[in-house]
Design a protein around this nucleic acid. Structure first.
Lengths: 131, 131
DNA sequence: CTACACCTTCCAGTGCACTGGAAGGTCAAG
DNA sequence: CTTGACCTTCCAGTGCACTGGAAGGTGTAG
């Protein structure tokens, strides 16, 4: 699979794929005779892992680290677990925070919706936010 | 309240507070005769709002925008609501994503915990991640 | 032969949210 | 009178995750 194909399969720009390779997140793939990158389908999985890990708040460096450990297949389960567990804690905190903020925003929006539009022109306060 | 005091009250560095002022997130506070910033206690609330909004995924620019509208007290409820609602949708998507990733990580960690440590040294795969 | 989409490398720039450091002013305590 | 903590401005740098553009090679279709 060429880089453009992989890009459209994963929704990740070709620029970004090359950047990931340079950052150590993706290994350098095989090359065709003409020098074009030739990706195996495993790259799709790897990129999906990267996306998941990223949305879990891991940096590219951390992701590269995990994947490198995985690739080396060394007895790194312990380190990996520690990293994952730390991020799990972080993730939980984040989810709680987001839910709290979500509730706040819902309340704000509801307050705004129920308001007499005329009251919006109060020169000193916008009830949606300040209430 | 001076900037250092505000910093310790909010957990936001003095550098960051000045940066927020420059970015329009915080209004320029009163100044003492010696030129020192003198913050009213309202700033604590405002900074907490900034923190909440930030953890909800709003950029400083958007936050500055909302607060500016609020400060002007104009009939901006509609715009504010649109912005908030857009971010609510975003937030929900984010929470779902995080929960999905969370489940994945939990599964990973559990798999790792149940594993015979000896299996970790398999030269080709780390079961924690690749399984 | 040419147009065109696609690929290559390399290097520079972007946007965000800070963060550091220099150079200097203020003020209470010792 | 000095030390030290705190404050000021200004400008530059950092780290992250891309993103753009130049200059050129490849390969197929018309």
């Amino acid at each position: 699979m060429r880089i453009g194909e992989l890009a459209s399969h994963t929704g990740v720009a070709t620029k970004t794929l090359r950047f990931y390779e340079e950052s150590g997140v993706l290994p350098g793939p095989d090359r065709d005779a003409n020098g074009y990158r030739n990706y195996s389908s495993e790259f799709v999985d790897r990129i999906n892992f990267v996306k998941d890990a990223q949305s879990a708040g891991l940096t590219l460096k951390e992701i590269a680290n995990i994947l490198e450990l995985r690739d080396r297949g060394e007895s790194t389960c312990h380190h990996t677990m520690e990293l994952l567990e730390a991020h799990l804690v972080d993730l939980d905190r984040q989810i709680v925070e987001l839910e709290r903020t979500r509730r706040q925003l819902v309340a704000m929006t509801r307050r705004a919706a129920q308001m007499d539009p005329a009251e919006c022109v109060d020169p000193n306060r916008c009830q949606t936010i300040s209430g």
